[in-house]
Design a protein around this nucleic acid. Structure first.
Lengths: 194, 194
DNA sequence: GGGGCCATGTAACCCGTTACATGATTGA
DNA sequence: TCAATCATGTAACGGGTTACATGGCCCC
């Protein structure tokens, strides 16, 4: 499921600009199970417009550049429904946090502690955020999704709290770190490089 | 965190071929929080070998092509530890299932039911699989990770069972599907296309 | 005054997936 | 005999991220 389709979905909620859709991914209800950046959203909207799946209303603004508010067309809605009718692909999860827990033996205990507590705090914050939402006038599916989020965040947060010591008091090997920057391998290991 | 780094991690567990590493991602303990395909693993191993972060032993075999068993070098281990010491990037989740639940209004009720029950069955199966593992002689971090998996799978599965009706009995709009194939938008929507 | 937010868009790049190429062995 | 599994690798393609480009307003 690509960003184009997600944009159509976002526009079923309400008319929005590319900027607003981005925020929806970042902070809104989508944030829990998807993400997308400007670099993919703006081209996606341009494509959808060209194909007649969305329409646009340019609102002139004070100083800022014109705000382009997009709306879903009937065709766009049909295409979105068709996308939902497809067989879903497997969930894709990439959690660097879990990788670190799995390989905790190879981490500095203080680093590990920090990663752990930061992660836990994030879950708690997410849970709080969902709890703070008003559930009045919300459709069943949205409520279900919120509940799912709560079940997940609260469940794993509770597990983490209960088993914090189990992970953080395990003995770890010595450190011995080399050349690693910005998430890129900068080898150096043995012998020759190119 | 790229496939290169994950390969180093896999090789801390035991020496392995590219083929075996793939299986680790597919079925093994990594499957829960990462994935990778041959097309990324083989080039990654070639790179790591070139950089001296892994070594290789070619085992000749009966009929099959030579099996290349890779081992982590001290340099490789250092680089891996350095990678773990980096600040973890945000977890990235892409769940088409959740998208479908969120937009359940726009789905055919039978489709939705199928997606729901298949998803639930997957969680139950994952939970069973973890439960069937032998926890003897397993290090603390691995146990923690397994427990985390259980907390997650069992937690959300329970939630789904308890709230199945809530989601599946909600009224949905009419269907009206157009031209959608293989996860690609084939528009058609309104008016002109290029 | 300066940082952050509003607002859109493009281009280069990176990384990974999919599909292709090859081929023998084993078990149903 | 036919499918699946073991086994490695390449090439094309795709999709999305990052960084760049631009610029004014608003609040501290």
């Amino acid at each position: 499921m690509d960003v184009k389709t997600l944009c159509l979905g976002a526009l079923t909620l309400r008319d929005a600009s590319g900027y607003e859709i981005r925020k929806l991914f970042e902070e809104g209800p989508f944030g829990h199970f998807y993400d997308a950046s400007y670099g993919s959203i703006y081209p996606a909207l341009a494509y959808l417009l060209k194909e007649g799946l969305v329409s646009v209303t340019e609102t002139q603004q004070d100083g800022r550049p014109d705000k382009k508010v997009y709306s879903l067309t009937p065709g766009g809605l049909s295409v979105f429904k068709a996308a939902l009718a497809e067989k879903p692909t497997r969930d894709r999860i990439r959690s660097e946090h879990m990788v670190r827990f799995f390989f905790a033996d190879y981490m500095d205990p203080d680093d590990l502690k920090l990663v752990f507590d930061t992660y836990l705090a994030e879950f708690r914050a997410m849970s709080e955020k969902i709890r703070s939402l008003d559930n009045q006038n919300i459709s069943q599916p949205r409520l279900f999704t919120r509940g799912f989020g709560l079940a997940f965040y609260d469940g794993v947060a509770a597990y983490m709290e209960e088993n914090r010591d189990q992970l953080l008091t395990a003995p770890s090997a010595d450190t011995g770190v080399v050349n690693f920057q910005n998430g890129k391998l900068k080898s150096v290991g043995a012998g020759d490089d190119d």
